[in-house]
Write a protein that binds this DNA or RNA. Structure first.
Lengths: 226, 226
DNA sequence: GATATTGATAACATTATGTTTACACAAATT
DNA sequence: AATTTGTGTAAACATAATGTTATCAATATC
C-alpha cells in the first residue's frame, strides 16, 4: 500500500506532547522528527524537507503562525502540509492559521486518535490523483477515469504501470519521450529500476493493444504514433 | 454515511471569505467551487449544476439578488438551494432575498460554525428528494429508500456498509474509485480502518449478489461494471 | 561487420487483493 | 437482564496479478 514512509516534523515546547504525538505517529508507520521552539522548527524543516509539519501555536522565539508564514514564503514549503495545534477557545488564531496556509488544525487537549485520523485524512486528500481527461487519438481512447483503453470500441484492460506509461506517451502524440523522462514521470524520481524494465512494459502494451501505436526511436526513447 | 458529496458553489468578491468558507465546507465533506463576481457565479453554476449556491449580496457586475433572479428563471435551477450572505443590518435586501426564492440567509460577519450548520440543515431538509435516487443499471436496481438491491426482480439484502459501498460504486458505473475515495466517502475522513476491510466488504457484496458486477483494478481501486 | 540498443522470454520478486476465521460490539429478541 | 443474531473490523494466510531482472537473440547505426 504505502510507497514510502512519510516524514513528519512536530514542533512543540512541551516534551511530553512531543513524545506522545511522536509515539503514536510512529506506530502508524510515519517517520517523526521534533523541534522544541519556532527557530528549531524552521531549521529542521529546511534540513529534513518533511511531508507534514505539526506546529504548536504557542512556542518560544517564534509562534507557530510566524513559523508557518516564514516557511510558506519559501518555494520549498509551498506545498508542504501544515497542521496547527491550537488552544480550544482560540478562534482568532485558528482563522489566522487558515489564512496563513495551514491545512488543518487540531484543538488541545490533543487526542492521539483524532490527531492521527486528521493526519491520515490530509495525506489521503493530497494523494487523490486528480485524474486527467480521456485521451482520444484516432480510433483509440484512453480513459483514466474508467481505467480502460478502447480500440474501435473494444475494451482493453492494462495493468497500472502499463496504463500510466501509455497515458504519458499518448498525452503528446508524436513527441518522443526520453527514457529518463519516462522513468521520472511514471516511476517517480526516487525509484531505481533497471534499463530493460521500460522495454518490457512497452512490449506488453503493444501485445495487449494488438496494434502498432508505439514507435521506438533508437538511442532516444519512445513515442506514440499511429 | 454519505452517499455522495454535495457540490456547493460559493460566490463572493473577498478571496479570504471564499477560502475560509470553502475550507470549512470541504472539511465537512462537501465539494466546493468558487466564483468572484456575479457573472462568474452564473457561468459556473451552469457548468457545475451545484446542489447549493452561496451568494454574497454585494458583488461586482451583478449582485447576489440579480444572480438569484436570473438562475431561478431557468428550469435547471428551479430547485437548487440558495443561501445569501448579507450584511447584518441590511434588513431590506434580506427580505427581497427571500422573496426572490432564497432558501436561507446568513449574516456577516460569518462564523464558519453557523454557516455549516445552516448548510447541513438545508440539506437535511431536502434530504429525501436529493439523496435517495434508485439506481438502475442493467438488470440491477439499488434502492436506498427501501435499502434493497434487486437483481432480475429478486431481492437481496445487504448490510449497511455493504449497501453504501455498492451504492457509491454504482452511482458512477464504469468509473474507478480509488481506495482512498472509497474510504473517505463511505467511512468518512475521521475513521481509521485496516487495509483489508474494503476487500472484505467487496467480497461480501459479490457473494450476496451472485453476479459479477464489481471489477478490481489492481493497484488503483474498484469499479462497478456489468 | 562491430557496437550499441532494444525485443523477447522466462524466472523471479514484490504487491495487492482474496479468503477465512475470530472477535468485539450493538441491536434485536427473549 | 440475558441471550441471540447480525454487522463491522482485524489478523493471518493464500493466491493471483503485476513489476522487475537476467539472459540472449535480433536489429539498427555507424
Amino acid at each position: 500500500m504505502e510507497t514510502k514512509a512519510k516524514r513528519i516534523l512536530i514542533a512543540d515546547d512541551e516534551p511530553d506532547i512531543l513524545e506522545i504525538i511522536s509515539y503514536n505517529l510512529i506506530k502508524e508507520g510515519y517517520e517523526t522528527y521534533t523541534a522544541k521552539d519556532g527557530n528549531e522548527a524552521i531549521e529542521r524543516a529546511k534540513q529534513l524537507n518533511p511531508d507534514l509539519i505539526i506546529l504548536d501555536i504557542m512556542m518560544p522565539y517564534k509562534t507557530g503562525l510566524e513559523v508557518c508564514e516564514i516557511l510558506r514564503s519559501m518555494p520549498l514549503f509551498e506545498n508542504t502540509l501544515i497542521i496547527f495545534l491550537t488552544a480550544l477557545s482560540d478562534e482568532s488564531s485558528h482563522i489566522k492559521g487558515l489564512e496563513m496556509g495551514a491545512d488543518d488544525y487540531v484543538s488541545k487537549p490533543i487526542s492521539p486518535k483524532v490527531l492521527i485520523s486528521r493526519v491520515n485524512a490530509l495525506f489521503r486528500r493530497t494523494h487523490k490523483e486528480t485524474d486527467g481527461k480521456t485521451l482520444k487519438i484516432g480510433n483509440i481512447s484512453i480513459d483514466p477515469i474508467r481505467f480502460i483503453v478502447e480500440i474501435n470500441g473494444e475494451e482493453v484492460m492494462l495493468a497500472k504501470k502499463e496504463f500510466e506509461l501509455l497515458y504519458l506517451l499518448a498525452s503528446k502524440p508524436g513527441r518522443v519521450f526520453l527514457r529518463n523522462e519516462i522513468l521520472s514521470q511514471v516511476w517517480g524520481t526516487d525509484v531505481i529500476v533497471g534499463d530493460r524494465t521500460i522495454d518490457v512494459h512497452i512490449r506488453k502494451i503493444r501485445q495487449k493493444l494488438g496494434i502498432d501505436c508505439i514507435t521506438t526511436v533508437k538511442g532516444v526513447g519512445y513515442k506514440f504514433d499511429l
